[in-house]
């Protein structure tokens, strides 16, 4: 039994979430993380229940609002390994604005998105990444909207670590997760994950036929090439680290945090109040 194991889940048998949970535990184990210094953050949804099933600190907040809570927790205590682990509706739908702006903020957290291209917990409506034409109880004539391309959007917004993975390729997923967690800055991994109950289009077989790992020859530091690669989503779907860039993270740019002492550990000078009051005389 792993250090990170806990209790029974509320997921459907055969759900891709199990593979992601399993991979995450392995990744954290292999990185030698202390569970007491790991903070799992999620919003609401079936994927967002994952923090409940892993032995670590967790903060399960509101639907769509996991990123603001997560980045602020990291600002308060940079010693925490902060991982947002939640779904596509949470990350790209309700939380779309936070997704864009936290890329710009570049706080050193990791964002794993269980992208099953459907709303699971609310029982099968289109998500921002659902394919065009997908028929659901709401999209009765087929989804008319263009699916969001989260990895392309992330690169365009200036993310420094953008990856795509598939829940069915555990070994590969674990290696991508480990690199994402180790990356200094905001790292996003869009994890393709079949929903066995509601998504009859994007099945295990669908992905198994299409996904291929980016090989040795692929240069993730080339932004234009990465954007082109990000747009490949059809007969073939590349998985792996699409884009990587070394850049200053939030803490390095913040005048209070750049010294490297966690905010909650900084001793405030006892004269601060007296000095500030002087301004008002």
């Amino acid at each position: 039994m792993s250090n990170f194991s806990t209790h029974q889940t509320a997921w459907c048998p055969g759900c891709g979430n199990f593979q992601i949970l399993d991979s995450l535990k392995t990744a954290l184990e292999e990185l030698g993380k202390d569970p007491y210094e790991v903070l799992m953050v999620a919003g609401i949804g079936q994927a967002a229940k994952l923090p409940q099933y892993i032995s670590a600190n967790f903060f399960c907040g509101l639907h769509g609002r996991s990123l603001p809570a997560a980045v602020a927790a990291k600002m308060a205590n940079e010693k925490l390994t902060v991982i947002v682990d939640t779904g596509d509706g949470d990350s790209y739908g309700e939380g779309g604005n936070h997704f864009i702006h936290n890329i710009r903020r570049n706080v050193d957290i990791t964002h794993f998105v269980h992208d099953n291209q459907i709303y699971g917990l609310t029982k099968g409506q289109a998500s921002p990444t659902s394919m065009e034409g997908m028929v659901t109880d709401v999209q009765v004539n087929g989804n008319a909207n263009t699916p969001l391309n989260p990895v392309l959007l992330a690169i365009a917004c200036g993310a420094g670590f953008v990856a795509r993975a598939f829940s069915g390729r555990k070994e590969h997923l674990v290696s991508v997760m480990k690199e994402a967690i180790e990356y200094k800055g905001y790292a996003i991994v869009d994890i393709l994950q079949p929903c066995v109950s509601f998504n009859k289009l994007n099945t295990f077989a669908y992905y198994n036929q299409r996904v291929y790992e980016l090989g040795e020859g692929y240069d993730p530091y080339n932004k234009i090439a990465a954007m082109e690669k990000s747009m490949e989503f059809g007969e073939k779907i590349p998985i792996g680290i699409l884009y990587k860039e070394d850049k200053a993270d939030y803490h390095q740019k913040n005048p209070v945090l750049k010294a490297g002492v966690p905010l909650i550990d900084i001793e405030r000078s006892p004269d601060v109040l007296k000095n500030i009051m002087q301004d008002f005389f």
């Binding site: 907040g61 509101l62 602020a72 308060a76 702006h101 913040n254 905010l263």
Partner: peptide
Amino acid sequence: VVEQAEDEIAAINMAIGAAFAGA
């Protein structure tokens, strides 16, 4: 740490996240 948020929803969720972490 003073952060100008992208919207008011982010602002309060940030404050809650920071407070959860002890600030």
